[in-house]
Amino acid sequence: MAQSNSRFAVVAALTGNALITIAKGTTFLITGSGAMLSETIHSVADFLNQLLLLIGLVRADRVPDRRYEYGYAGERYVWALISAVGIFFLGCGVTLYHGVQSLFHPPELDFGEMKWAIAALLFALVIDGVVFFLALKTEWKNAQKEKKAFHQYLRKEADPASVAVILEDGAACLGVMIALISILLTKMTGSPYWDAIGSIGIGVLLGGIAVWLIIRNQELLVGPSIPQETKEQVQRILKNNPLIDDVLDLRSRILSIDNYRIKVDLSFDPKELSKRLKKKALAAYPQIQSEQDFEEFCQKYTRDILDTLAEEIDKIEAEIQRQVPEAKHLDLEAN
């Protein structure tokens, strides 16, 4: 479901930004506005970023094979990291460079054609606003379903592809407003410096978004542990089992937002285990008449111990996966 929601958000953003890029680019060619060029670069960066996000989602959906036995889920973070770096250098870098250059060498602007820039920006604001609302609404519902605070859910558990769409389209709406203000101030004052300042503001905005996305995807590529409340939930399941004496070690890693790997070292209670095997042992005890009978009894009793432990581990894994569906890779070991 999360994968499906993320793909919908990315495709919607990709389609919207394709239309916006064409509108902004055409308007820049008409007006020569630096803020419009910055907005065009912004939309190109968003379009390329969402294309990379879509590639990552498609590649991450491949089934595990012999080479990658835990699957390809990490690919979404690789492509998302590449796109975030692209935003930083292409979106932020080029926009800042153009804005600073415009401060020292202001371009000649045709104020009569600024109405086209305003129309294009209003069109972009509507499209970006719709995509932003759809992505935000989807993640809000997910957070409510998980009973998590929305900002914490976005920061720690939401799919980075969906978060990227929210941040980028939120920044796009803010960037459009910056561009509108700078163009209006330029037209009102007759000074092209406002246009350059607007361009720099949009560049700084893109840089902040890119840095956040780089940090988030770097965390996921390295492999953080599962959320603390989920880890505590797994520990409660284990400690509530009467056969488990102690949880010696619990380690986890997020492979993707809906795929956790959890490794646990367990100490089983020998008294509880002997209680479960007592009836079988008592039934077999009278039949021990010789050393060979005793050896056969020991072998059978050892098999019963191993079978009981294996059955119990299977039950524990089933219960963990029932309560934590993301725990797709469980490794429970008896020590």
Rank of each mutant, 00 (worst) to 15 (best):
Y68Q: 09
E108Y: 14
P270F: 02
A327I: 01
C298S: 10
D128C: 07
E157Q: 15
K280H: 13
L154Y: 08
D246K: 13
E157T: 11
G198H: 06
P227E: 04
L51D: 04
A119Q: 08
G175C: 14
I215K: 12
G34R: 11
A334Y: 09
E317N: 09
L134V: 13
G16S: 14
M188T: 13
L221G: 02
L19R: 01
G203M: 14
D128N: 15
L122F: 10
K24W: 04
L167Q: 09
A158D: 00
P106C: 07
V204S: 10
R251D: 06
G56V: 04
A84V: 00
M36I: 11
R251C: 04
E295R: 10
M114S: 15
V78C: 13
N142G: 06
L220M: 14
T21M: 13
T21R: 00
E311H: 13
Y68K: 05
I197P: 02
R7H: 04
H105F: 13
G223F: 05
A135Q: 06
Y301H: 11
T15M: 15
G34I: 15
K115D: 14
P224F: 06
G91K: 02
R236D: 10
K300V: 11
T27G: 14
S199V: 14
K300M: 13
T186H: 05
V11E: 07
P325A: 05
Y193C: 03
V63R: 13
F123M: 09
M1R: 04
P224D: 07
P224R: 06
T31M: 01
E232P: 03
L273Y: 02
F28Y: 15
A161W: 00
Y70D: 01
